[in-house]
Write a protein that binds this DNA or RNA. Structure first.
Lengths: 222, 222, 222, 222
DNA sequence: GATGAATGAGTATTCATTCAT
DNA sequence: AATGAATGAATACTCATTCAT
C-alpha cells in the first residue's frame, strides 16, 4: 500500500492521519480494481481498520472517490505551482502545466488511473482538477489576441484532450510524441496556428528530461 | 417505448424481431435510468417479455449495452451515408458528418444519452462509432496538405471533442454555437488555422435548418 | 428449532453464538428438506436472522453443510469418548463405538439425516467423522493378530457399512438386528471369523438398553 | 462423444436410435460435469439435437440419469452373463462377477463415474444394478453352509463395498490390490473365514490379466 | 418426431450502511 | 474514534419445461 497522503498528514491530528491512510488505501484499491468494483471492506482492510471506521470519515464510496481524486489533483497542482512560479507567459504556462500534469500523474500509475476513472465517472470536469488552467488561459488570452472565449466548453474540450492523452499514456507507457501532439492540439484549439503551436511546444519539450519523472519538471520548464 | 429497431426488423425472423424489441426497450430504460442503474427485469418488462428471454439473446447487460449503442451508431452512420454521397471534399465531409452526427443523435435524446454513457463506460472509442470519420479525414489529408498523422490518437481526440459537445447539447439543448465551435476546434486540430476553420464551418452552418432535426440534414449540407 | 449448538456456545462471544444458532437451524432445515433443497433464506429465517448474516459466518451452503455435519460428528465423538474411557480392548472398543455411534446418531433423527446426506454428497469419508475408529482398530490389530492393513480403504469400507446401516435405521426405525449384523460384518472384515464376531458383538449387545437412546450408552458398554 | 448405445440401436427404429444417442451424450456430460451440474441443453447440444427433442424421450433429467445408469448396468450384466455361463459354484460366481463388474465398469471411466454418482444420488441400490448378485449368493448359500441371511441389508452392504472400491479405482487407477481386498471383504461378510476368502479370491485373480480390460475377462475367469 | 424461441419461477450473493459496544 | 457483527434490499442468471410451427 502506498503511504503518500498518510505520510503527508503525519504532523496533523489522528483524524487527519486516518483520513490520509484511507485515501492511500483507496487509491491502491481503486487503481487495481476500478472504483466501481472496489468495496469499502477491501479498502478498510488494506488500511488495517474496521469497516465501520470508514463512516467516521466519509459519507460513502463516492465521497471517498471525490476526496481521493481531489487529493491527487491538489497534490499535482501543488507540485505544478512550485515549478511554474517564474513563468510569466500564458501560453508557456499552459504548455508547461499540461505537460507537467501528464508527467506527474503518470509518475504514479495509481494516481493516473484514479484520475482517469473519476473523470469518466463524472464526465464533467471536476473544476478543481483543471482549475489551474483557466487562469493561465485567460492570461494567455490577454497577452496575445487568441480570439477564444474562455468558458467551460473550452475548458472541457481541452480537459478531454488531456484525459484522452493520459489514458493513452497509461496504456502505452510514456511516449513523448503523445505529450507533444496533445499540447499542440490544445494550443491549436486555443487559436494558434499549427506552426505557432509547434514552436511553443518545442520551447518546452526541448528542455525536458522526462525519463526521471516529476522530480525534474522544474528544471525542464524554464 | 420506442420501436425503431423492432420496426426495422419486421421483415426478419422472430429471433431478429425479439432482439430488436429488446434493443428498443433497452435504449429507453438506459436513457432514463442510466446503463448502470437499469435492471434486466425492467427492460424485459417494458419489452413485454419474460426476463429469461433476455438471456436467449444477450449474454448480460453489457452485451446489450454494446449492441444497443452499436445499433444506434450504425443507424446514424447509415443516415449519414445517404446524405453525404454527393460530397467530395474531405474537409466538408468531416464538418457535415460531425455536424449531422450530433444533430441526428440529438434528434433522439435517448440515442444521444446511450451513446454518451456507453462512450464513457468504454472510454476508448468504439471504432465503429466513428469509423466513418477516418476515411473522410484521410481524404481531406490527401486533398490539402493538413500535416496531421491520421492515427487512433487523433481520432480519439476528435471523438472526445464530439462527445463533450454531445453532452453539453444534451444538457443545454440544441445550441448552434456549440456545434460551430466544436467543428471549428476539430478542424483546428486537423491543422486548419482558426480563420480557415471558421470559413469551412460557415459553409455548412449557413445553410442548416437545425430545428427540424435529422430530416433535413441533406438539404442543409449543400 | 433445535438449540443444541447454540446452547453449547452460550458462554462464548456473540460471533460463536450466532454461528451455533445457524448450525442448529441448518440441521433442522437440512434434515427436513435435504441439503440440496434447503435455501439459505429458510435457514436464516428459522434462525431469526437476516439472510446476509449467514455470509458473515459461512462461505456458502456447502461450507455450512460441512460445518454442520462436522459439529455433529464432533459432538458424537465427544460423547463416545466419555463413555469408552474405561474400555481397553480394541475389538470391544470398535464394537461399542460403532454401536454407540449409530445409537447416538439415531437418537436425534435430524443429526442422523444430516450425517447420511453429507456422507453421500462427499462420498469419501470425512476423516474426522470416523477418526475415532482408526485408533481403536489399530489397537485391536496389535492386541490380536487380525491380519488386516489399517488404511483408508479399510476405513472407507467400514464406514460405508455403518452408513448403509444408519440409512436403514432411519428408514425402519431402531432395529437391534441391524446393529448386530452391521457390527458382525465389520468384525468379519477386520478378520474375525463369523463365530468370533458373533461372540464379540454379544458381549456388547447383551447389556445394551437401546430404547432410551444416548443417555444410557455408558451403562450399556460395560 | 461416445456412441455405444447409439451404435447398439442401429438396427432399431429411429425412436430407439435417438434415445440411444441421448444416453450416449448424457453419459459423457454426466461423467464430465456430474449429474447435478449437467444441463439438458448441454446434453442435447452434444447429441446434435434441439433441446425440445429431449422431452419426446425422457420425462426429466432424473429419468435420463436412471435410464443411463440402467443401460450401463444392463450392458455390464450382459457381458457378465456371457462370461459366467460355465461357472457353477456360487462363491466363485460372486467373486468373478464382482471382479469383472469392477473391471468392466472401469474399462470405461465415464460408465464408472455415472454408476458411482447415480448410486450416491439414490443411496439405495438400484436393484437392477446388482440384481445378478442375489442369485449367485443364494446359490452359494445353498451349496455351502454360509450362515447368512440373504436380504436387502446384506445386498446393500455388499454393494456399498463395491462402490467404495469403484470410487477408489477411479481415483487411483486400476490396482489389483483393491479388487482382491474388496472381494475378500465381501466373502468375509458372506461368512467365509479370512483364509477361505483369500483362497477363493486367489482362484480367480491368479488367472486374470487385468491390464487389457474387459476383453479378456472370460479367459481370466476359468 | 423434431424444432427452438419463449417462459418465469426460484435463490444465492454482495455490500453499503447502521449501531451497540 | 474505532470496532465489527448484523442488516436486508436489490438483482442477475439458470434451466427445466412448454408449445406453436
Amino acid at each position: 500500500m502506498q503511504n503518500y497522503f498518510r505520510t503527508q498528514a503525519l504532523g496533523a491530528g489522528k483524524r487527519v492521519r486516518t483520513r490520509g491512510t484511507l485515501i492511500d488505501s483507496a487509491i491502491d484499491v481503486f487503481s487495481e480494481k476500478g472504483i466501481e468494483e472496489a468495496s469499502i471492506n477491501e479498502i478498510t482492510a488494506l488500511a488495517g481498520m474496521a469497516n465501520g471506521t470508514f463512516y467516521n470519515h466519509f459519507k460513502d464510496k463516492d465521497d471517498l472517490a471525490v476526496a481521493s481524486s481531489g487529493a491527487i489533483a491538489l497534490e499535482i497542482a501543488r507540485q505544478l505551482d512550485l515549478r511554474m512560479s517564474d513563468l510569466d507567459e500564458g501560453i508557456s504556462r499552459v504548455v508547461v502545466a499540461s505537460w507537467a500534469f501528464l508527467t506527474i500523474a503518470l509518475s504514479n500509475r495509481a494516481w493516473a488511473q484514479v484520475l482517469v476513472e473519476q473523470y469518466q465517472r463524472h464526465a464533467e470536469v471536476d473544476e478543481s482538477t483543471f482549475s489551474y488552467m483557466r487562469a493561465d488561459i485567460e492570461r494567455a488570452a490577454k497577452q496575445r489576441e487568441l480570439g477564444v472565449v474562455v468558458d467551460t466548453l473550452l475548458l472541457e474540450q481541452l480537459a478531454s484532450l488531456m484525459m484522452v492523452a493520459l489514458r493513452r499514456l497509461l496504456r502505452e507507457g510514456m511516449r513523448e510524441e503523445i505529450l507533444v501532439r496533445t499540447c499542440e492540439y490544445m494550443l491549436r484549439i486555443l487559436g494558434l496556428t499549427p506552426v505557432q503551436a509547434k514552436k511553443e511546444v518545442e520551447k518546452v519539450s526541448g528542455h525536458s528530461l522526462l525519463e526521471d519523472g516529476a522530480s525534474n519538471i522544474i528544471s525542464s520548464s524554464e
